[in-house]
Computed example of a mutant assay.
Amino acid sequence: MKNKFIVIEGLEGAGKTTICKKIRNLLFYKKIKNIIIVRQPGGTYISEKIRKIIKSENKDEKLNIYAELLLLYSARLQLMENIIYPKFKQGAWIISDRHNLSSIAYQGGGRGLNQNLIKQLTKITNNFIKPDLTIFLDVHPKIGIKRAILRKKLDRIEKKSINFFKKVRKCYLKYLSFQSKKIIINANCTIKQVNKIIKNKLYKWLKNQDETVSMAEKKI
Rank of each mutant, 00 (worst) to 15 (best):
K89Q: 11
E61I: 15
K2A: 12
G108I: 01
K49R: 14
N116V: 11
D138C: 04
G43H: 12
L121R: 01
K21A: 08
I198K: 00
G13F: 00
S180N: 13
I135M: 12
N114K: 09
K30N: 15
A148D: 05
N127I: 07
S47C: 04
K182D: 05
L101W: 08
I50V: 10
Y29C: 13
I54Q: 03
I198P: 01
G10Y: 04
E217I: 07
L71M: 07
E57V: 06
P86I: 12
Q209L: 10
T44S: 13
I46P: 11
K201L: 10
E12T: 00
K207V: 03
G110H: 02
I95W: 07
R76N: 02
I157V: 15
N116L: 14
E68K: 02
F136T: 10
V194H: 00
Y73A: 10
K218F: 01
S56H: 03
I35N: 06
I19L: 09
G91T: 09
R111W: 09
L63I: 02
T125P: 03
L77D: 06
A92M: 09
L173G: 00
K87G: 04
V168Y: 02
S103E: 10
I124T: 07
S103P: 08
P86F: 06
D97Y: 13
S74V: 07
K2T: 09
D97N: 13
V139E: 11
K153T: 14
I50K: 01
T44A: 12
I19V: 11
N114P: 00
I135P: 00
T134A: 02
Y175T: 04
E9P: 01
Q209R: 10
W93C: 13
M80G: 03
Y106W: 03
I19R: 05
V194G: 00
T212F: 11
N195A: 12
I95T: 10
I220M: 13
D210L: 14
F165W: 11
N82M: 15
I8Q: 10
Y172G: 02
L133R: 02
D155Q: 08
S47Y: 03
G13R: 04
V194C: 03
F28I: 08
G10E: 02
E12V: 03
R51E: 05
L70F: 13
Y172K: 00
Q193W: 01
L79F: 02
K167E: 11
L133H: 04
N25Y: 08
K146I: 07
I19Y: 09
R24M: 14
P41Q: 11
E57C: 11
D132F: 05
I220P: 08
T212G: 12
K219S: 12
S96A: 15
I54R: 06
I46W: 14
G91V: 14
A148V: 03
S102D: 13
T122K: 07
T212R: 12
A216V: 09
D60E: 13
K182V: 00
K159L: 15
K52R: 10
G15E: 00
I53H: 11
F5K: 04
L27A: 05
L101D: 12
Q90W: 09
Y106S: 10
D97F: 10
K219W: 12
R111Y: 15
L176H: 06
G144Y: 11
T190H: 05
S177I: 03
K33D: 14
D97I: 11
R39K: 15
Y85H: 09
E12Q: 05
I197H: 06
D132N: 13
C20M: 05
K159M: 09
G112R: 06
Q115I: 15
I94D: 05
F88C: 06
T122I: 15
I104T: 14
